[in-house]
Simulated scan of single mutants.
Amino acid sequence: MKSHILLVEDDLDLAATIIDYLELEEICCDHASNGVIGLQLIEKNYYDMAILDINMPRMNGLSLCKSVRDLGFNMPILMLTARDSLPDKLAGFEVGTDDYMVKPFEMLELIARINVLAKRQSGQSQQFSVADLTVDFESKIAKRQQRELKLSPTGWKLLEVLLRKSPQVISREQLSRTIWGDDIPDSNSLKVHIFKLRQQVDSEDDTKLLKTISGQGFALKP
């Protein structure tokens, strides 16, 4: 799956440079020019990680990071800063920052840190359970009680995204972008794949776990 990240940076020239470079690396990137908009996007969308500038109008990066953590989002956060002092870095770590980069920086190093942080989240665990659903992504075994699920490659991707964000709701748009990137197929494709996944996850005798949340998207939860 392609990484989908959020960049919150008020320097529009720098933001454009970063976005262009990320596109070359096939990394999807949304951009917000201030912390308030950034928080709104995080509440609405699914991101593998976020890059936050510290010095921003309306809501700075430290305040944004603290708000994100207070809301329960555990995505990795990389802070961009012109401050290289230890107290400033400690302040960032205290509110939940995972890593720092001091401006100016090399784009190759930024990509390396993004890849490390994205893997840190995706590799936190390979085994998950929700109610009586157990999944091992390393061995590609998914079961409800003793019944083994038969999933397509796309079904596995959908299940992974839903499990890693469970019990949060993920919008249709974000599921599509996570699975297919910018090459999203016709609107019925996601519907068909969700239907097939639901057939496997929720049989007639099972408590329903794959929920459709009207007007919002989908969630995997008891």
Rank of each mutant, 00 (worst) to 15 (best):
F128D: 02
I170Y: 03
N188F: 12
L175D: 02
S166T: 02
L162P: 00
L158P: 09
L197G: 06
I194Y: 08
I194A: 02
L163N: 06
F137M: 04
S176K: 08
S176A: 12
L149D: 04
E173I: 08
Q145S: 13
F128T: 08
D183K: 15
F137C: 02
F128R: 03
A131W: 11
W156P: 03
I141Y: 08
T154Q: 10
R164M: 11
P153F: 11
V130C: 13
S166A: 15
Q146E: 15
S189R: 15
L158I: 11
G181Q: 07
S187W: 06
R177T: 12
V161N: 04
Q199D: 13
Q124T: 07
I141S: 11
L158G: 09
G181N: 04
D182C: 05
Q200R: 04
L197F: 03
I170E: 03
E138D: 14
D132G: 01
S129N: 10
S187C: 06
G181T: 05
G123P: 02
D136A: 06
V130Y: 07
D182W: 07
Q124S: 10
R177I: 13
S171N: 08
K191E: 14
G155C: 04
S176E: 14
T134F: 09
E173S: 10
Q174I: 01
S176D: 05
F128P: 00
L133P: 01
T134N: 10
E160L: 06
T207F: 06
L149N: 04
I194Q: 04
V201N: 01
E160S: 07
S187H: 13
T154V: 15
V201W: 04
V201Q: 02
T178D: 02
D182R: 10
H193P: 00
Q145P: 01
E160C: 06
Q126F: 09
S139I: 04
D206C: 12
L163P: 05
D136V: 00
W156H: 02
V192A: 12
Q127S: 14
L151A: 07
Q199T: 09
I179W: 07
Q174L: 03
Q200F: 06
R177M: 14
F195L: 12
S176P: 00
L162R: 01
Q199K: 15
Q126N: 11
Q126A: 06
K208I: 13
P167D: 04
T154S: 10
I141A: 06
S189K: 15
L190W: 09
S171H: 09
L159F: 07
S176F: 03
L175I: 07
S187P: 00
S125Y: 04
R172F: 05
D206W: 08
V135Q: 00
Q199G: 12
T178I: 03
K140F: 13
L163T: 03
E160W: 01
S171A: 09
L151F: 06
V169Q: 10
P167E: 07
S187K: 15
V161L: 08
Q127I: 10
W156T: 01
K196M: 09
T178P: 00
K208F: 05
